[in-house]
Every structure is written in structure tokens, then in C-alpha cells.
Design a protein around this nucleic acid. Sequence first.
DNA 1: TAAATTGTTCAGTATTAATTGAACAAATTG
DNA 2: CAATTTGTTCAATTAATACTGAACAATTTA
Lengths: 188, 188
Amino acid sequence: MDKNQDIQRVEESRDILISAIAQTMVIYGVTPSVGRIYGVLYYADRPLNLDEIKEQVAMSKGSVSTGLRDLLDTEMVIKVWKKGNRKDHYIAEKDFFKNFFAFFVKKLRQERSIISRANQQVEGVLEDVASNSQSEEARKMAQGDLEDIDQTKVYFDWTLKLANAMETGDIFKSFPINSKEGDETGND
Amino acid sequence: MDKNQDIQRVEESRDILISAIAQTMVIYGVTPSVGRIYGVLYYADRPLNLDEIKEQVAMSKGSVSTGLRDLLDTEMVIKVWKKGNRKDHYIAEKDFFKNFFAFFVKKLRQERSIISRANQQVEGVLEDVASNSQSEEARKMAQGDLEDIDQTKVYFDWTLKLANAMETGDIFKSFPINSKEGDETGND
DNA sequence: TAAATTGTTCAGTATTAATTGAACAAATTG
DNA sequence: CAATTTGTTCAATTAATACTGAACAATTTA
């Protein structure tokens, strides 16, 4: 039974790799369980359905369902249809570049949206105080805060550029991938 | 009483901006409380000590202490000494670029470290199985996994390059900051 | 050196987030 | 159309995390 033993050795290796993947995903803000779902799909040699995943990660159907939703939202997992099969099937997006870019672009967009809204909310008031207030102290404060807001705009202009470069793949023009042989990372 | 009213208007604006900053920091994985500490320091016009912060954010001394430790670890806050004063004082790192890069680089380093360790742990086993196993299935599995590991190396080589460019500032050679051209609204 | 001040740690508590499982909805089959 | 299968939602439960406050340690002062 040497054959099965070798397969088992590979499977033990995979468990270690899956744990590592789950851990890194925790860094990026998902729960260990959701990380494990991704890890299992990463090392599956075919699309898995909900029940198969549920069994492998030992979680409830509900948790797997919501976990998959998260992973679909962030595009780390893709839903595929297998003809002649009613169940949904899932595969992992294995391109770490894509996953990494999707993560960062999303964060930057959220950040931008929150700060922009707040800036818009207060800019009018600050501009009024900065130019019309009787109080020098108030004017100074408002002027300083407006300068800070201007700085955030410079920052957001820049991060938007970076995010676009990531989405289009232009970032590889500035920072090329040096793969040892043939570039496998088909970034659209 | 017009003067104080204007100052109050600025302070109300700051509250909105502080909340927004706290919210964005939640995106990046810190608690709202810690985010508020940073926000308060961001809009403080002088270094604050622990008691002053504690009062402004309405938290216990212990929480402010550990919150500040987190912010110091990630270099979003700097400790300064005021001569003739026994208390530690703190200021916010207001440069969003620095904060973003520090965050980014730290994540990449953590990720790298976790995956590299796992890869090292299993590489020997997989190489052995891939070339010596009697079982074709086992060999195939191991070979596939080794290819995946190679891909992660390509990915990590690249992210390391990017992280270095951020730390040195070289990234601005590829993606320059345009300080102020046309009033690009920083809003979606 | 003792007294006073300041900052940190940590056990207990409070708060928040994740998970379960059963009920529900949607889709498919015969 | 009813019966069956599949996926989702959500209230209740469980688990994880953050916060408090008092005890402790470290530092400064006199």
C-alpha cells in the first residue's frame, strides 16, 4: 500500500498549505473558516458543490453558504455551472495577483468613499469660517483643516491611479513580473 | 459670542472628519476606538498625553494605553518627549502615504512569512513524491502542487519589489504625485 | 530612601462577531 | 401541479474580542 501512502503524504502537505492560506486570509480580514473554504477550493482538482465543501471544512450549510457569498463578492471564488447537475459548483481564483489587486482596490475605494463624503459634508462650513469668521483662531483652525483636506485629495488622486494600474495590469509595465520560464499569470 | 460659535462650528466639522478617519481605519483592521484615538491626535494642534487622549475619547486608561501601543507599532502615531514634562506625548503621523505604505508593506511581509514557512515545510515531501512515487496519481498531485508553489514564489518576488519601491519612495518614479493640477474632485 | 506620578498588564466583564440549524424560498422534476 | 432538491436567511447560541479598573512596575522627585 505504498501508493496510498504517497497520496496521503501529498494530502498532509495540502493540509499544511491550506492552513497557511487560511492564515494569510485572516491577515486580509476574513475569518479562518472562510479562509479554509478558499483553501479547500484552491487544492480541489475539480469544482466542488456546497455539500462537498461543507463536508471538507466541517461547517454548517448556512456558514458555508455565507462564506461562499463573501468569497464570491471579493471574486476570490467563482461559481461554475456543470451541465446535468442542479447544484452550484465553485472553483478558487488561484491567481494571487488578481486576488491581491481585488483586495486592495476594494479597500482603496471604500476609504475614498468614506473620506470624500465627510470632506464634502464639512468643506462648505470650513470655507465659510476660514474666510469670514471674526475670530482669528477660528479662521486659522479652519484654514489648517482645509489644507489637510487638500492633502487627502492629493492622496486619493494617487491611490486612484495606482488602483487603475492594478486593474488594467499597467502596473506590470512599471513593475514587471520576472517568472523563471513562460509567464503563466494570464492577467486579462 | 460669534467667535466661539465659529470655533464650535470647526470643532463639529472635526468630529465628522474624526469619525470618517475612524471608519476608514476599521477597514484596515483596527477597532473603532483605536481609530478614534488616531483621529483625535490627527486634529490635535499639539502633542497630547495619555490623560488628555483618555478624556477626549472617553475610554479607560488601559484601553488608551494598548490602543496607543497598536498605533505606535504600525507607526501611525509617534511618541514625543516634551522637556520638563514627565508624561509621554503623542502625535499622529498625518502623511497618508506613509501610513498606507506601512500598512501595505506589513501585510505583504506577514503573508510572505506564513506562506514561505509552509512551502518550506512541504516542498521536500512533494519533491520526493513527485519524482519517486510508484503511484502516478500521487506523482501528478505532487507535481501540480509544486507548480502552485512556484507560482507563489513568482508572486512573492513581485510583491517584494513593490514593497521595496514603497519603502524607498521609488514608486513615485513610476506613479508620480500630481500635487495640484486642475480641481480633480476627490469624489465618486 | 520613601513618596508621588505615570504607564502597563491582566483577570473579569461587556460587547461584538461568527456559527448553527431550522424554517423558508426558489428551482427542478415527474 | 405536488414532491423533491438545493440554497439562503435569520433568530438563538456560541465563540472571540475589546474594554475596564485595580494591582503592579517603572520612573521621577524630594
